[in-house]
Nucleic acid binder design. Structure first.
Length: 780
DNA sequence: GCGTGGGGGATACCG
DNA sequence: ACCGGTATCCCCCACGCG
């Protein structure tokens, strides 16, 4: 029989002599099904030292224990054709060992693709995209007795992409755990999970609560999951924290934690994601990490930023207060947990479409792709496409991280400007790579002569790339960009509120993310396709094109006020369209009039400016007010000053307004008439060992002494208090300072004044005018 | 012994 | 565990002065 199947999760096991791939998913009727494929073995390639020994190689390999079959194969490696042996392996878990053994044979130059997991080989070789309907021939088989599914089948045919583009209706479950620590971070050996709030697939909210211990709670949690049988589980911070904690607690209680569609425990797997067999466990923090505008990645902030729930809704309880609320204000804690699980679900709804599309594009299962860093998302996309093209996948190797010169940044013309146009190249780096066929497989090393078809030569650095045939990057980038253009075209004909619109919107975003990260990927030492000249040449061409458009703009009589990497800022006037056309014609690169600022202000610094668009929105770029490591007192003050300067017609009037605002604001700060949290400075702990003494490291030490486990990736919030000595000696955790201890002079002199003066000095304000409120200092 | 200036560490931004 | 370019703060130490 033939079924439609949508892949949610994949795993493998080995019940007998042959391994099995298990595909967990949903059929077109909405049945939860398990497909079992007993006819797939993994394979890798052995490349002989020279062509003549291919037969010898095949013979030698065939006789090795654990090899199922050896076939001759023709492949390409970095553009070079080669013949090799395709070695099929009986037991996936022995592939590495086998490859190592074969690598050591005297007739073998090297082995490839043994480092690609069995399940990923399956998806790629069988052309099975995750999160997409496919049709496949199957035969019914008996359900594994402990598997929670409607039916099981054995795969008997090939997968064929289905016409159906929609996703099935997924059952989602959201959960939020409350885990108080008596003193600092909770320890699973002695601190129980006290509450789990859940929103089931039916929309029912359940709030589980611990009794004397959490064994009932954990049992009930598993029971809710089992009975509501979700396809997707949403949580926040669950990959790094909650799941591990729940598993540890289960072990302490001598229990299992059977939350999957089979198996007794969730387990940590690739990219640090926690795998719940048969379901997709998604940690929404993984998506929030990619949103740079959210500085402090709390559930509350993320939900607020994304319009899921205002930050002031529901009680706010800080981590160190949880234990107290559990002991004495439990009703508030329940309310808190209920609000937070709603936040989790809201975020899940925001990100699910994107996750699904990313999974389709990249080819990694949904839960993997969500947790994978950008580099790995790009890489799996490349791996899938390379295999499809018969190109061997390079192994990951230790490489020396040689640095190279990147993009070009112009010194801005400081001051206030009006009517400024921004011209920028559309997807500059991807287009450069396509245009000049920049790719690891088209690169010509210095010792090789020019090929007959000719080559592109990068400016400044001189790296050469074959004109023909098209390289891997040219192929995959043009495919990504073509697909995205097609999706964007289709979007135009759809209603913005239709579900399909949301799907396509997510799809074009997924395609863009991958295309835009490809240049960065080429310069990543850890990349399988890392090749410094590829990144170096791309950047060199970028500088060349930027210089070209600067010259063309100046030739046309425009003054270039600023520029960064792929853009220039010029006065907007007659002739801009003309300039754009001439640039496109000369350079064969898309360039656009990106925006026009009514007014824009630059300081002397690069990468920092504030502009007012025609529609009244403000762009704040690089300034202190967009940086998460400045306290809100300084950020708010600067932001308001910028707003005044940009929106007040007369500069003279703006100056006076800004002055009186800042004077008053500083008075408010001095008298603590601003929210206390606006003094907190947040900084990330980025590593284990430090050379320097800094405020945030000293505070991290304080917190550790208090029992908090501070790890790289954590942010510490501190305030500066009055007293003598170094700044770091006067920095304390934000929650342990009394308002009257705060060193308001520090905040005014070192944070607020510098931040606002950087703007105000360009409208004629002197620092002395702000300090004394027009007093004596003004005359000094 | 004390103030200063510059180098370097650390962080987070831009494109 | 994506790149290089950049600003900014703070710490620290060499240096000059007395």
């Amino acid at each position: 029989m033939r079924i439609s199947f949508w892949l949610l999760d994949i795993d493998s096991h080995k019940p007998g002599p042959r391994p099995e791939v298990r595909l967990w998913g949903i059929d077109e009727e909405g049945k939860r099904v398990l497909l079992i494929d007993k006819n797939f073995l993994p394979r890798f390639y052995a490349v002989p030292r020279n062509d003549s020994s291919q037969n010898v190689l095949i013979n030698r390999c065939s006789r090795i224990e654990g090899v199922a079959e050896v076939r001759p194969a023709k492949k390409r490696f970095l553009g070079k054709e080669l013949t090799c042996a395709e070695i099929w392996v009986k037991d996936p878990s022995s592939m590495d060992k086998l490859a190592k053994k074969i690598s050591n044979l005297d007739v073998v130059a090297g082995c490839y693709e043994h480092d690609i997991r069995y399940t990923m080989q399956y998806l790629i070789l069988r052309d099975l995209p995750p999160c997409k309907f496919v049709e496949v021939e199957v035969s019914p088989t008996s359900k594994p007795e402990d598997a929670q599914i409607d039916s099981a089948y054995e795969v008997t045919g090939e997968f064929k992409l289905s016409e159906v583009e929609e996703s099935p209706e997924l059952r989602t479950l959201s959960f939020y755990c409350v885990i108080p620590g008596k003193r600092g971070s909770p320890d699973p050996r002695n601190s129980p999970v006290v509450m789990i709030s859940i929103i089931t697939p039916d929309g029912e909210t359940i709030c589980l609560e611990a009794g004397n211990d959490d064994s009932e709670l954990l049992k009930d949690f598993c029971e809710v999951i089992k009975s509501s049988d979700p396809d997707v589980i949403f949580g926040y911070g669950t990959n790094k924290r909650d799941w591990m904690y729940l598993v540890e607690r289960a072990k302490v209680n001598g229990m299992k934690l059977p939350v999957g569609r089979i198996g007794l425990f969730p387990h940590t797997s690739a990219y640090g994601h926690v795998s719940v067999t048969g379901r997709a466990n998604l940690d929404l923090l993984d998506f929030v990490e990619d949103i740079q505008e959210i500085k402090l990645k709390t559930l509350r902030n993320a939900a607020d930023y994304l319009g899921v729930m205002p930050e002031n809704e529901g009680p706010e309880i800080l981590e160190y207060e949880l234990y107290d609320y559990w002991s004495r204000k439990r009703e508030v804690l329940r309310d808190y947990a209920r609000h937070n699980v709603r936040r989790v679900r809201g975020l899940g709804e925001k990100f699910l479409d994107f996750g699904i599309q990313l999974s389709q594009v990249v080819g990694l299962p949904l839960d993997h792709v969500a947790a994978a860093a950008v580099g790995f998302r790009v890489e799996w996309f490349l791996i899938k496409e390379a295999v499809r093209r018969g190109e061997l996948v390079p192994p990951r190797k230790e490489a020396f991280a040689g640095s190279y010169v990147g993009g070009m940044v112009l010194k801005p013309e400081p001051g206030v400007h009006e009517n400024i146009a921004v011209l920028d190249f559309a997807s500059m780096y991807p287009n450069i790579m396509m245009l000049n066929n920049v790719s690891p497989d088209t690169y010509i090393p210095p010792d090789e002569p020019d090929p007959p078809q000719g080559c592109y030569v990068a400016p400044e650095v001189g790296h050469r790339f074959r004109k023909e045939p098209p390289g891997l990057y040219r192929e995959i980038l043009s495919e990504l960009i073509r697909a995205r253009r097609e999706v964007k075209e289709k979007l135009k004909s759809l209603q913005e509120d239709s579900p399909y619109y949301r799907v396509l919107q997510a799809r074009q975003k997924a395609l863009k993310v991958i295309a835009n990260a490809t240049y960065g990927y080429t310069g990543w030492v850890g990349a399988r396709w890392y090749l410094k000249p590829v990144a170096e040449a791309t950047a060199a061409w970028g500088r060349y094109y930027l210089r070209s458009i600067i010259a063309m703009a100046e030739e046309a009589g425009f003054k270039v006020i600023y520029g960064d990497t792929d853009s220039i800022f010029i006065r907007y006037r007659e002739g801009v369209e003309d300039l754009l056309n001439r640039i496109e014609e000369k350079l064969s690169l898309d360039i656009k009039l990106e925006k026009v600022y009514q007014r824009i202000i630059f300081t002397e610094a690069k990468k920092k400016y504030a502009g007012l668009l025609e529609d009244g929105t403000m762009d704040l770029v690089g300034l202190e007010c967009v940086r998460g490591d400045w306290p809100d007192v300084a950020r708010k003050a600067q932001r308001e000053v910028v707003r005044i300067v940009l929106t007040t017609k007369e500069i003279r009037e703006a100056r006076e307004k800004a002055k009186s605002f800042i004077r008053k604001y500083m008075e408010d700060v001095r008298n603590l008439r601003v929210p206390l949290r606006d003094f907190t400075i947040w900084k990330e702990i980025t590593k284990k060992e430090y050379k320097a003494r800094t405020p945030h490291l000293k505070v991290a030490e304080d917190l550790r002494r208090m029992g908090w486990k501070i790890k790289p990736g954590d942010k510490v919030g501190y305030v500066v208090v009055k007293g003598s000595g170094k700044l770091y000696e006067r920095s304390v955790p934000f929650f342990s300072a009394r308002p009257e201890d705060i060193d308001v002079d520090y905040y005014i002199d070192k944070m607020i004044l510098p931040a606002v003066m950087r703007i105000l000095k360009f409208v004629g304000v002197k620092e002395s005018e702000l300090k004394g409120g027009g007093g004596l200092e003004a005359f000094l």
